[in-house]
Design a protein around this nucleic acid. Sequence first.
DNA 1: AAGTGATATAACCAAATGGTTAAACCAAAG
DNA 2: CTTTGGTTTAACCATTTGGTTATATCACTT
Lengths: 203, 203
Amino acid sequence: MTKIKDTTEEKILNAAKEVFMKYGLYGARMQDIADIAKINKALLHYYFRSKEKLFDQVFSGALHKYFQQMDVFSDASLPIKERLFKYVDNIFVFLEEYPQMSMFIIKEIGINPDLFKDRVEAIKKNKGVNLIKILDEEIARGNIKKIDTALFWINMHSLCSYPFLAAPLFKHGLKAHHKEWSDYSPVKIKQSVKQFIEKTLSV
Amino acid sequence: MTKIKDTTEEKILNAAKEVFMKYGLYGARMQDIADIAKINKALLHYYFRSKEKLFDQVFSGALHKYFQQMDVFSDASLPIKERLFKYVDNIFVFLEEYPQMSMFIIKEIGINPDLFKDRVEAIKKNKGVNLIKILDEEIARGNIKKIDTALFWINMHSLCSYPFLAAPLFKHGLKAHHKEWSDYSPVKIKQSVKQFIEKTLSV
DNA sequence: AAGTGATATAACCAAATGGTTAAACCAAAG
DNA sequence: CTTTGGTTTAACCATTTGGTTATATCACTT
């Protein structure tokens, strides 16, 4: 499936990703990371000088992947709705692989806002695509309904992300109603997100 | 605003709530809790035997408040849409006071699923209201559109909760578009949730 | 004023944690 | 075979962490 180089460095990074995502910077234990990577704890410091440095690498990678999904918006050749649908597809692929990542990013930013300011500026400049601006332009051209684009953006993301974040809750909640989470995620949810987009944007 | 008894026990619980919500069980430090409560660390153990016990109290309280919102559904005298609107109002009041709580619950359940199984069963039995079942009944009576009720439930919660969870992200993201988070949350978001309910359920 | 029980604190302890070091391993080059 | 370089490990260290204890303080009763 995914490429596995299996170098020591990658084993560490994968283990660190797992542990940091679950417990956050403060809650994570270097020994746990070493155990999962099946290496000696000292190797962590050999490859990444400190816990903070290792965390920084993991967090940067997460943030990069998170914003990478927006690349599809650069493709101005596609009609806006197609781009949005493709974006939703991207998000779902991403969320299925890293269901915890958006929460990880949100949590760590909440704890240490500085992590964000520095890094995001760099990413933003690299991409240079202004998603809400694009939607506003489409409205000006009359291609979509006249809506509050920022609000639409928030709502669309909510519909996509929250089901994955809250999966532990929903899994249990649905079972109480003799329904299975697997029947809902991700196929049906993706459908209903696209429905929401369709209904909200159609003139 | 909220009643403040200001007993030592409450000071500790409030401090613990703050720290546990931010850092989780593993990430939280007893000394931090003591500092915020402005008491000696030993007092923590005097009132609550251990870190786990203190956490348990905080977590139980959070879970209780979280599910308490659903009480409005017991009031069968109101038409279903009124009940849903009232429920949304409740959620927003709750989320404005405890924006981190749903993430706290979700995170801790993800780490330690056992916490959930034991406690939720008790809560569920106390309430005895089956929300999705109520919606299904309303469909049978022809009061609302024939929809997938569980999916509707998930979507509605997503629209309510995620904006609060992801506030740190949105705050920053909106500023980049010269818009302010305060212009969107919570008034406009609540409106659009109710719009979503209206559109989705109307026959 | 003296006694009493609950409340609070400083000082302490053992275990865990992030981090270091010196020595061992091991593949490739000479 | 020996050397050389990067890689890996066991043993260790200083600090932090959750938790305990002995002592002090305070509110209240007698």
